[in-house]
Design a protein around this nucleic acid. Structure first.
Lengths: 129, 129
DNA sequence: TATAAACACGACGTTAACGTCATGTTTGGA
DNA sequence: TCCAAACATGACGTTAACGTCGTGTTTATA
């Protein structure tokens, strides 16, 4: 609930390791948060949300690189104007890829069901002996 | 169309590299095919089909390990009886995982669409200036 | 039969996404 | 103030799924 966590609290609240936080930081997935001259990094509540969103997207099969391309849209403040038309393109691309994957998975699902049924039937038949 | 290809033809027809063939062979995804004492491996038409099916499943996000668990079902001859009840379990598990992934992807798709619309609207508004 | 093309096999290289030390500095509580 | 707990950083390790090289044997063709 604080807006000045160190990496320990952050990682615990987000459910990731400190190594992961540092890795994502270096990869540009989350903003860095150094403070003063001491060297320790301080993070805010939004970073927790970012880490959780990243985790969600990962579970959908997106790579960190892909996530880096879209993550900002989830935390866009309506003030950062720019040639972000590019982002739109990326989004559309991800959209059609998602469509492809969904279609493929549904086909796979159907195949699995068919196989299961065939298999059960075959087991039943074998029992008759 | 031959049933006695060597690795060159096989890999070309299946659209994979020879290294991939050897790797899959070692991983147990395709049956080995040595012949005589010479050392060269000979493959059949079915192996081409297997390689293509493996490629399809890969594109759905299955790992080689997962594929190894189900690939035989696609090429099961109705004669190999055994405690393959286990296979049924694996199939069911894959089924529910596929369901989860589909659901997630659809949510992701919806999110993307929302973001795209919001973004386009925002661009339009900004143009009004 | 002489060779180039094809094949076999071992070993090291590569990318992604971190894990796991090792070592040195900073912070927070008794 | 002192010291254990927390943090920073660098470096090497790990898994998956192959790529790439080097070297040595087999096959096919002129």
């Amino acid at each position: 609930m604080k807006d000045r966590m160190r990496i320990g609290d952050l990682s615990e609240r987000a459910g990731v390791t400190q190594r992961t936080v540092r890795y994502y930081e270096k990869m540009g997935l989350i903003p860095p948060g150094e403070r003063e001259g001491n060297g320790q990094h301080y993070y805010t509540e939004e970073t927790v949300a970012r880490l959780r969103k990243i985790d969600q997207l990962k579970k959908l099969g997106l790579s960190l690189e892909e996530i880096r391309d879209v993550i900002d849209l989830y935390f866009m403040d309506p003030s950062g104007v720019q040639p972000k038309q590019k982002v739109l393109g990326i989004l559309r691309q991800h959209l059609s890829e998602a469509d492809r994957k969904i279609e493929g998975l549904q086909q796979f699902r159907t195949d699995l069901l068919t196989n299961i049924e065939r298999f059960e039937q075959w087991l039943k038949d074998a029992e008759q002996l």
